Simulated assay, not measured.
Amino acid sequence: MRAIGALILGIAIVAGLAVATSRAAEEPPAGQSEAKAPTAASPTSAVPVTPKDAAPPPSVTIIGASEAHGVLGRDVRSAADEDMGRIVDVIVDRGGHVRAAAIDFGGFLGVGSRKIVVDWNALRFGKIANKKDSITLELTKAQVAAAPEYKEDTPIVVLGASGSLQPLQAIQ
């Protein structure tokens, strides 16, 4: 039933975008009036104003609620079901590729915690141990506890499960 609702919602969104796009193409830009037919008082012929670089309608993709989730603020567990912290940031390279996640690790109720960075490939997304949509880190609590703290505007030390993380290449 949810799938049908999502499909109907998607169709409504696409239809709404199509109507809005066609209305925008029909209306003159703000501050301009529509071109009028030439009259005896104005011998020059008027040409209708149309935007030359009208943007095509955006593409629309519908992702089911059970197909994808945001990750910021989500709890992370170890394979041994230990609390590993919460994802507080996602690190991307200059090409926009996801490289790592910053996890707020340790402490109690936010006191004494610190941010550490783990390789994105060390995270597993899926169902484990009867917990729907869990995030599991393929590192032990001791490994994460030994990781250096992440601080903005300093070189990032990324902790990886297999040690196969490649260093970032500097982009000039």
Rank of each mutant, 00 (worst) to 15 (best):
A65R: 07
I87P: 01
S164L: 15
E67N: 09
R94P: 01
G31M: 10
E67I: 04
E34V: 15
I11K: 06
I11P: 00
L168G: 02
E152H: 07
I8P: 01
A80F: 03
I8E: 09
I11H: 02
A146V: 04
N130K: 15
S22Q: 15
Q166Y: 03
V71A: 05
A65D: 11
A6W: 07
S134V: 14
T21E: 10
L7Y: 09
I156G: 01
I156E: 00
G73Q: 07
P28E: 11
V111E: 13
R99C: 01
S42N: 15
E138W: 04
V157P: 00
G112A: 11
A122F: 03
S33M: 10
E27L: 15
D93L: 00
D75F: 11
V144D: 01
I91N: 00
P38A: 14
D153H: 14
A41R: 11
A35N: 06
E34L: 12
P148D: 11
S33D: 07
A129Q: 11
S134C: 09
V144T: 13
R77D: 12
G106Y: 03
G112I: 15
T61I: 10
G126F: 08
Y150M: 02
S45F: 14
I11F: 04
K132H: 12
R86A: 11
T61M: 10
V144I: 11
K151F: 04
D89T: 06
S66R: 13
D133M: 12
A24W: 03
V14W: 05
P167N: 03
A122M: 08
I11L: 12
D53A: 12
A142N: 09
G160W: 02
A40R: 14
T154I: 03
D93A: 00
G96D: 00
V117W: 01
A3T: 10
A46D: 10
V60W: 09
E34C: 03
S66H: 13
D89P: 00
A37C: 06
A145P: 07
L109H: 10
H97E: 01
A146D: 15
A12F: 08
G95H: 03
F108H: 15
I11M: 08
P38Q: 10
V92H: 09
V118R: 01
S59I: 12
D119W: 03
G10V: 03
S78M: 10
E26W: 09
A35I: 11
L9Y: 06
A40D: 09
G112V: 12
A20E: 12
